[in-house]
Structures are given as C-alpha cells and as structure tokens.
Design a protein around this nucleic acid. Structure first.
Lengths: 206, 206, 206, 206
DNA sequence: TGTTAACCGAGACGGTACGTCACGTCTTACA
DNA sequence: TGTAAGACGTGACGTACCGTCTCGGTTAACA
C-alpha cells in the first residue's frame, strides 16, 4: 500500500519504527472513506479525481500521494477495505433453489456501497491486475458458497458427474455479470437468466 | 454518426444538396484510421485523446467534433468500421471438436487490429451502450456459428433437448471472455478453459 | 514577448500571418492589467502568483503560459506597458531650482500605478536583466531632462567644467533611490537629501 | 533572534536558567553555516528554502523555526554573522588615489562568501528593514574610511568646505552599487565608473 | 539518582502555487 | 460551408515548499 514500503512492513518480525511523525490513521481512513463515498455516489472510476478525494476527506493532496503512487493504487486499497456486508442468504432448500438464491444475490447488490461500487469496477479489472486480485478476494466467499452447492448437487445426483466445479461456477456467474453489468447480449435482455442458467446446468430438469 | 446531418436526412428522397463545401471523405477515413491505429498500438481506450487522433490524422480538432459529439461516439464508429477479418474455421468434426475450435478463435484474436482492439473494449461496454451494440454486431457472426453447432448437438443428442441455445452460448463465451480479458478467477488461470467449458456443458446437458 | 516568437514578429516586413486562431488582444490586455493591478495593490513582486493574475484577468492559466514562459517575463512586459503618466514639471527657473524639482519627482511618485509599482521593482532589477532594461527605458525621459539641466548648468557656470554629465546624473539619482527605496543609510534619514545632493554638485554654492 | 526568549529576558539580572535541555549551539552554527553556504553557492535569496537549509545543516525544520520566526529573520542573522574579512587597503596616497582604492574594494568583493552574498542582498533591503540594518552595520567600517578620506580632502582643500560628508559618500557609493549590482544605467556600462565618480566629485567640489 | 521539561532528528500534516496536459468550444484565413 | 490550425476557459495532474504538528529519543538542571 505504501509508496515507499516501510521497513516495518518489509521485515515484519523486525518491527523497527520508522523515524519521524507516523502517518495519521485518521487520514488513511478519511481518504478511503472519501474514495468509497465518491465511487458510491456515482462518480465513474475513470472520472474519480484525487483532488475531489482530498477535498472530501479534508486532506492535502500530498497526503494522498504520500501513501499511493496513483489513482489506481488508491482504488485498489479502497476496494480491498470493503468488507462484504452482504445480506445473508438462507440456504437449505433444494440445490436448484439454493443456486438461484445465491446467484440472484450476486447481481442484485441491494445493500450499501458494496452494491454501488462493484459493478463500476468490472470494467477496470483488465486494466488493473491488482484490482482484479482484490475483487477476487472480496467475491471469493460468495463463490465458495456456490461451489459448495454444486458439490452437493453432484452428490445428490441433481448435477451430472463429470462437471468441473470451478468451471461450472464460472458458467453460472460470468454470463450473469456480463449481462447485468455490460448488456453483453441483447438477446438475453429481459429474461430470467438466473433460472435459465441453473436449469441448463441441472441434470434433474432433463 | 453525424452530429447534425442524420443518415435519414442525408439519404432522404428530397436530396437537396447542402450548401457550401461538402465534408471531406478523406478526413472521415483518416480520423477513423488514426483512431484504430492508436487503439491498436496500445493506447488504452480511456487514454485515447482527441488531440492525438487529430494530430495523427492530420486534421483539425473541430473537424472531428463536427462529426462526432464526443470521444465515445467516435470510438463506436471506429469499432463499427472494423470488418471482422477473422481467419476461417474449419467446421465439420464432432460437436465437441467444432465448439472447441470456435471458442478458441474467440479468444485468440491472432491477427490484425481486430485482435488488438476488441479486448480493450470489453471494459467500456457498460459505460457505453452504443459501443456494446456495435460490439454485438461485430461478434454476432461468430456467436451464430456457435449457436448452429449447439443446435446440431441437440439434433444429434449430444446436448439434451430443451436447453436454451442462447443461454448455452453465454455459458461458453462469457467465462472465456471474463477469464481471458479480466483474469476474473485466479483458480482458472493456466488451464485449458475452452476444453473444460465444452466438456462441462456436454456433461451437464447430455 | 511571445514564448514562441511568431514568424510575423521575427521577420517584420514579411508579415505572413500565423495559421489558426490568433491570440486574443483582449486577453493580452486583461492579463497585463491584472498584473499591474495586483502589483499596484501591494502584492510584492515575489509573491505575485500566476493563478491570481489568471483569476483576476478572467483567463485560464494556459493562456498566460502560452504568452510568457514565466512570471518574470510577464512582469517585464507588464512594466514595459506602463507609459509614464508622470505629472509635468515646470522647468525654467534657476539650474538649482530645476534640478531640485526634477529630483523630487523622481522619488515622490505621487500619481497612479507607476508610483506604486516602480519602487517594488528596484530590488528585482539585479535578478532580472530584461526588467532592468525596461526600467531604464521607462526612466530615460526623466534622466534626459536631468542631463539637459546639468548641461545648462555647465554652460552657465553653475556647475564646474570637468563634470561628466552621465556620471553626475547617477550621483544625483542613485543616492535618492537607494535611500528612499531601500533605507540604505540610516544617517541620511530625515534630511532633505534632494537639496543637499544638488548643492553638493553645484559650484555656485561654494 | 530568539522567537520566545528575548535578549532582554536572557540577560536579565534574574538569570534563572530555563528548565529542560538547552538549545544546541552546534545546531545554531550548522544552520547559519548552511544558510550562508547555500546563499554563496548561487541560490537566490528569494529561492532559499528552509527545507534545503535544514537538509544541508542536518537539522530538523522545527529546530530552525524554534529559533527564527521566518526565513527573513534567519537570513538577517546569517548575514549579521558574517565578519567582513575584507582585504586591507593601503591608504596614504593623494585623496583621489585613496578614494579610488576604497571604492574599488567596495564593489569588487574578491574573496569569500562575503563577496558572493552581499550583492544578492541589496534587492532585499527594501523588503526587510532589519536586513538593511545589519547590512549597514557590516558596511559601516568601509563607509567610515571613505568619510575620513573626504574629511581629509576638505582639510587639504581638494574638496570645498561646506560639503556634507555623508552626502558625498552616498554620491560615490550609491551609483557604484546600483550600477554594479543592478545594471541601472546602460550608458555607464563598461566605463571605469570608480575613477569617473571620484573625478566628477572632485571637479564639482574643488 | 531519578524526574522532568525542553531539546533534537525526522517527517507527516493541511495548504498554496507551480507548470503541463487534454478537454470541448471558438475563431481565424483559405478553399 | 468545410478545413487545418490553434487559441480559448476549465480543471486535474503530480511536485515542491510552506509553517505547524507529532513521534521516539536525548540531555542537563532540579529535586
């Protein structure tokens, strides 16, 4: 995160303090908060300006540049700081019902800044591998639930053996994301894609 | 495309010539060419500057703004002007072999500016519905070939009847794009995703 | 004056116009006016900021930087644009009376921006030879009047022969400037330096 | 000099020592030395930065600001600490020869930091009365020698009685300074101004 | 012999201005 | 009217210092 990686961060065990006044944790927090607020309030990622972040955080520009070399690095850290406060999903119905519930949550993002911000990031992922990494970390818990359900489906016979779990997750999630966030395929607009994807995967419906 | 003179007005039956000097077709072409060149030479879409396009095209900035209201519209038209000079794919093997061959071409883009530019656009699609539309038109022929193959699979029994063809296409194409262009899921890096997708689909829907 | 000396300015007779939109004369004037206003309103030369000039002139910073490479060049031109609107001095008395009247005017600067600005510049002259040159041009008319009077004094015998006119002017003017603008010698504070200088020069008083 | 502890308080009869660690004399010295070094190495007075002084002195910025309220005060003290290590001038010729020798030394400053720094200060004198005061104190010994010589000239009859000694000194010194340090009058460039000044004074006042 | 208060270096803090760049609009002379 | 050129006002960029403010760690006189 730091532009100049501190000795403390570099050699974790040898926690020799950096000289001089330590960086303000309040500034750290204010900057991240300001970034997320601006992102959540509709500012497109590419239009996010450091000056706006500094103004909203009540912080000098130099205080931001001291911590992050550029806008992208700041956004990466801001995104990484989001803890998925996603609404809990009740699982325990049939495999089909659980998958549908999990996938709906993936694209509905009903609550909080998480839901406002994530869709804006998708387009940045290619440009910014670090951001992609953080994005993966944030979405991993959700993906894991889907993996579990697919494994359960294979065990119960609802899903055919021979299905690769990881690949199957992608086959469910990727079409949803590309469709909902990027209007990728006009032919699929307006249909209940979640149900169709799950039903296509499930052998039981055949 | 035109800011002022719509296509409808231009091709109207009442083809009264506009007064004054007509717009230069050479300028049109030079601008589009310059845009594609810059895009193909690595300039990220968001960093493409009108000034650079004007300079490379040997054209005044106003000449660009007279034709396109903004950068996005210009990119849309530039992309639309690409004719998919994609290498032909030999089809005629098994359904599995044909699907694999078709999907490989989707993400390999080995030749020409088409291959350099398309991946960069994916992230812009959300921000730019018109661009998404042009993108769809350009990729439609390829998608149609995949649809045909899936229909053939249904006919031959390789794929269960009742599968939504459009959804199945998305389940094959979307994961590939998200993975190859956005490193979406680190767990899938380095695997032969094309084969796995086809096999998983066939396993699930056989 | 221009950062990039225009062809027109370089080869005066061959007045081939520069292509493109010509520089706005109104902007030129507004910038110079704003600079002089700020200087006259007490802003020290070293504290004059381009941003303030731009704001007061209602002009973009780039418009200033297009014309002047830096603050010093701008100040030079601003100063050069002052036309000495100095109050006329009635000459025609004795040599002594005329010299005293001319010298008093030199340091009293009663009227207008000229009087407010010039003293501030003296300290900049060393740092800025171009500014020194403009300063000389502006003060030359006054110096010429003093030279004439000294020559008259030599002709009438009020001033001894053997006095170098140019040197004598400096001996009258330089002490005044250094004293009035820089409090150079505390022993001379509060005395009527003008009369003393003139009387020291004049042979008639011996 | 001190921001908080005034000289009066320090040398008061009630010389109760301040508690806590006393200020480091080494820091004092290092700061002054660094300031003079930077000034002597060509840094213009207005471009001298406290950060640079601190860095070169190996001192924290706060250590400087604890002693001096601002840059100007620091420069004043730094200048005051210079002891004029001027080369001795042999006096004892005619009045004319002695005046010429003394004035030559005034503007030649051949040796050491004194010569490098003083010319840069002239322009600051107006802005900074305290600096002007220190400047006067430093140059006073030289001025006194010139005064003595003029008085001798009056005694020998080379200079007419009734001439104000202080004014005569200014008529010799001020033109020299303004010319050598500020290129004040282009007509006097390249001439032996020292000799001309002395001769003109002697001619006028003989 | 501690205590204590001001010192020290380092450097982060909120600011201001710098000089550059691209935006999208405009204004020329010419074709 | 269209064109190439380029100036216009705007606003963000990333940098450099400003003068102030913490940090942990001396350093000397007082208790």
């Amino acid at each position: 995160m730091d532009v100049t990686t501190t000795a403390a961060a570099a050699s974790a065990d040898q926690d020799r303090k950096a000289p001089g006044r330590p960086r303000s944790a309040r500034a750290d927090e204010a900057i991240i908060e300001a970034t997320l607020d601006l992102l959540a309030s509709g500012t497109p990622v590419e239009a996010l300006s450091i000056e706006a972040v500094a103004a909203r955080a009540g912080v000098g520009k130099a205080t931001i540049y001291r911590r992050w070399a550029n806008k992208e690095k700041l956004i990466v850290d801001a995104v990484a700081s989001i803890k998925g406060e996603s609404a809990p999903v009740e699982i325990g119905g049939s495999v089909r019902e659980d998958l549908i519930a999990l996938l709906r949550r993936t694209t509905q993002h009903p609550t909080g800044r998480f839901g406002m911000i994530m869709p804006c990031l998708v387009g940045e992922l290619k440009r910014n591998p670090q951001l992609a990494h953080e994005y993966s970390k944030l979405t991993e818990p959700r993906r894991e639930l889907i993996r579990d359900t697919i494994r359960r489906g294979i065990a119960t016979g609802d899903i055919r053996a021979g299905v690769d779990v990881e690949v199957a997750v992608s086959m469910l999630v990727a079409p949803l994301i590309m469709q909902n966030m990027m209007k990728f395929n006009p032919a699929l607009e307006g249909v209940d894609l979640v149900a169709k994807l799950v039903d296509t995967l499930l052998a039981a419906t055949s």
